[in-house]
């Protein structure tokens, strides 16, 4: 359902411009989502070929970021959007940046996957990695759905999920430290897993940022830097 009535301007070209913006962002989102999925698959299955594929997609994602920003600039210059249209353009511009960063983090995970394959297989840390990866992938999926449907409830789910991911990340880190204490020879390898975990956690943070931009887009509320409970209160009151 189109809650923002993007297709009801007097100018059909304006409708088309905004609709294109939305489609382009979803395409970029899909691309980044696949990049994250592949990076996780590469590190979980020690697949360095897949990891290299992730790193090559990076350039394409960067190009999309630039194209989307240019599109936003053009709409601002030509249409001087107001109210929900203005929020749409601003939110897309910010979401693009977060998506690009998510792609960067996926790239880092892929690089760690290549390093881990080079160092030889080990199961240490992979359970933690899989667990966190599952939660993060779910967040990214919900985040894209929330944008596609302009769904504030779905965006709030992403925000709540990020709290859990942060908690999981902390406990995984603790677990990995015990591996390193038990067997100092594993430090190099486990550190690579830790970096990958850190990147996944950052992807979760970016997904939360995107969710906040979606809330701004739909409700006009700036909920950045507020607690989840405060956010819930503001959203329910608006």
């Amino acid at each position: 359902m189109d809650k923002l009535h993007l297709d009801q301007h007097i100018s059909r070209q304006y409708n088309a411009d905004l609709e294109d913006l939305r489609t382009e962002l979803l395409e970029m989102g899909g691309m980044v989502q696949e990049q994250i999925r592949d990076a996780i698959s590469a590190i979980s299955n020690a697949d360095s070929d897949l990891a290299r594929k992730v790193t090559t997609v990076e350039d394409e994602v960067d190009a999309r970021e630039i194209a989307l920003d240019e599109h936003c600039t053009l709409i601002l210059a030509r249409r001087q959007p107001a109210a929900s249209d203005l929020r749409m353009v601003l939110a897309v511009s910010k979401i693009t940046r977060d998506l690009e960063r998510m792609g960067d983090e996926a790239n880092k995970v892929a690089t760690m996957a290549i390093a881990l394959v080079d160092e030889g297989q080990s199961s240490q840390g992979y359970v933690e990695l899989r667990h966190l990866a599952k939660s993060v992938l779910l967040m990214v999926d919900q985040m894209l759905n929330a944008f596609a449907r302009f769904d504030v409830d779905a965006a709030m789910t992403v925000v709540r999920e990020d709290k859990l991911v942060d908690r999981e990340y902390k406990s995984s880190t603790r677990e990995l430290i015990t591996y390193m204490m038990e067997d100092p020879r594993s430090i190099g390898r486990v550190m690579n897993v830790m970096w990958a975990l850190r990147s996944l956690e950052r992807i979760g943070d970016h997904a939360r940022n995107v969710a906040e931009h979606i809330i701004y887009l739909v409700k006009g509320l700036d909920v950045r830097h507020t607690s989840v409970s405060e956010m819930e209160r503001q959203v329910s009151e608006s």
């Binding site: 009535h5 007097i10 304006y14 249409r79 107001a82 109210a83 929900s84 929020r87 409700k219 006009g220």
Partner: peptide
């Protein structure tokens, strides 16, 4: 407020060029 997040949908429709 009116130009970023108006309270009434008619205001929103007018300032965003949805009717005139």
């Amino acid at each position: 407020k009116v130009f970023t997040n108006p309270d009434h949908q008619l205001t929103e429709a007018y300032i965003t060029g949805r009717f005139g």
